[in-house]
């Protein structure tokens, strides 16, 4: 067993750099689409059409939002810890985009202009660990941002983020243990390839539900959006942020949303595999995107449905319900895999 992790497919260095830029660009340009999609969909759930004033069918609304935010003053509270205050949104955004890098959009390297290119930022055999690592580091953006703002609301939001983090990371990891045991690998492309016959959502249904709920908590979506909590904490950890820095947090939030959809697709919904159909390779990214959209739709649907949980309810649910379920799921999976 080599000490260093290996990478599934190596491209030449210039393709790597190009790919990094492309992943960054795709991730960034998916954000306004996700933003518009969520607002439109949320509108439908509330019997209204959603944004439809800026551009045809409101398609330029995100652009208008972003331009407005960039035109605003970069405000900083007097007591704020300056460099942390500036760094935190960057940490949140970079880590969110870094997790996006690991979502595979196609297994076999695709032929682009004669050069075989794997349609993912990186396919390491510890891919899932990297995802978790960046997700954990990403929450530092929230924690430090709330703390360095020197504001009560921000601090409360950051504290809630910390409590939420420890309540859910473990359940989330354990929920995935079932998938990892079944697939026998941490590499995301190999996990997808294991699902060519049967998507993991069927044998790992309990794990899928647990992981989905934990993911909602991890990306701070309703019903677990305690750290923003508009009704009680103004805007939680980002109360003191405005303008471009607020936009960075917003980007991070929506990249998280997309990554959550992509990760669920990769781990449970068979990635680019379709049942009974063997589509050509160039269709793979679109299949992944379509599945991601389905998951994102469901997340928005849940946002339109459920109210916010109370602080103690969230922790009780995380520790007393999700963690045991995830543990039992992992144990049963392990027993089944070994016994067969």
């Amino acid at each position: 067993m080599p000490l260093l992790s290996t990478v599934g497919y190596y491209e030449p260095w210039y393709v790597q750099i190009l790919k990094a830029l492309v992943v960054f660009g795709v991730g960034f340009s998916l954000v306004p689409l996700a933003l518009l999609y969520e607002r439109k969909l949320l509108g439908r759930f509330q019997n209204r059409p959603g944004p439809n004033r800026v551009g045809p069918f409101g398609t330029l609304q995100p652009a208008a939002d972003i331009l407005k935010l960039l035109g605003k003053e970069q405000f900083r509270p007097t007591n704020a810890i300056g460099w942390l205050f500036i760094l935190s949104p960057l940490v949140a955004m970079v880590c969110a985009l870094a997790t996006f890098m690991l979502i595979p959009f196609s297994g076999a390297p695709q032929d682009i202009l004669g050069t075989p290119v794997g349609l993912y930022g990186l396919d390491s055999d510890i891919g899932l660990l990297i995802v978790f690592a960046f997700a954990s580091v990403g929450s530092y953006g929230v924690l430090l941002g709330g703390w360095s703002s020197a504001s009560k609301y921000s601090f409360l939001g950051a504290m809630r983020a910390a409590a939420q983090l420890i309540s859910y990371e473990i359940a989330q990891g354990l929920a995935l243990l079932g998938v990892i045991i079944s697939a026998g690998t941490l590499s995301l492309t190999e996990i997808v390839d294991e699902q060519s016959a049967l998507w993991f959502v069927i044998p790992q249904l309990v794990g899928a539900i647990t992981f989905f709920i934990a993911t909602l908590a991890e990306i701070n979506r309703t019903p677990f959006d305690l750290l923003e909590a508009d009704s009680e904490l103004v805007a939680g950890f980002m109360t003191e942020y405005g303008g471009g820095r607020f936009a960075l947090y917003y980007v991070a939030e929506y990249v998280h949303l997309i990554v959550a959809g992509g990760l669920f697709t990769t781990l449970f919904l068979g990635g680019w595999h379709l049942p009974f159909v063997d589509q050509p390779g160039w269709l793979d990214p679109f299949v992944v995107l379509a599945k991601t959209i389905v998951v994102v739709t469901f997340i928005v649907w849940i946002r339109a449905t459920l109210p916010k949980l109370r602080y103690d309810q969230l922790m009780t649910f995380g520790w007393k319900v999700l963690l045991p379920i995830a543990t039992v799921n992992a144990l049963v999976t392990a027993v089944v895999v070994v016994a067969w």
Binding site: G43, R44, F45, Q46, N47, R48, P49, N52, W301, I302, A304, T305, L306, F317
Partner: peptide
């Protein structure tokens, strides 16, 4: 919680089906 969540999801989906009531 699970059952009530499903019931809530059904309710909100009903609103999508019901359509918008906005006067432009």
């Amino acid at each position: 919680i699970f059952g009530e969540t499903l019931r809530g999801l059904k309710t909100t989906f009903g609103q999508v089906v019901a359509g918008t009531t906005t006067v432009e």
